[in-house]
């Protein structure tokens, strides 16, 4: 169910897409925060001649789309849900780089939701395209919605 907590999401839920224009600050600050020094992400002074969005920023896009679709648990705004979530699997495929100044559209849906060893798992699929339709990233993500195991003290 959209509009609630992240743990309310169900298999088949389709996110309302989000779109934004990539700024130099977003790319550089993100790269700086994880000590990535490649000039690709900090300026246009690289072999591509343009500043590139770090491909791992797909995870930021996940946070953006959750913020827009799970309004009771807007983590970016500082809200917390009933349980802490943990990331279990990241799987990004790069189809083309996205550059500073481009508008990108993030869409996606919930592929599956299941219990494993007393913990609830959520499988997301996200896709990033430029506003003119060029595919940038496809992404599968597995998140554990509650680390504490059910039935374990």
């Amino acid at each position: 169910m959209l509009g609630g907590y992240i743990s309310d999401l169900e298999k088949g839920d389709v996110f309302k897409p989000v779109e934004y224009v990539i700024t130099p600050f977003m790319c550089s600050e993100y790269a700086h925060g994880c000590e990535e020094q490649s000039e690709y992400f900090h300026s246009a002074h690289n072999s591509a001649g343009r500043q590139i969005r770090p491909p791992t920023m797909i995870h930021v896009d996940k946070m953006r789309i959750l913020e827009a679709n799970c309004t009771k648990e807007q983590r970016v705004s500082g809200m917390k849900g009933p349980d802490a979530r943990i990331h279990f699997e990241y799987h990004a495929k790069h189809h083309s780089p996205a550059y500073v100044g481009e508008k990108i559209v993030v869409s996606g849906h919930i592929v599956d939701k299941y219990m494993k060893r007393g913990r609830p798992y959520l499988h997301y699929y996200l896709e990033v395209k430029t506003s003119d339709g060029r595919l940038v990233t496809t992404y599968n993500d597995l998140t554990v919605l509650r680390y504490k195991q059910e039935g374990v003290a």
Binding site: Y40, S47, A48, I52, P55, T56, I86, H87, F88, E89, Y90, H91, A92, K93, H94, H95, S96, P97
Partner: peptide
């Protein structure tokens, strides 16, 4: 640039 244009990465924590 080859990784940025045609790469993939999967991590399990």
């Amino acid at each position: 640039i080859h990784y940025l244009e045609r790469g993939s990465l999967r991590n399990k924590y």
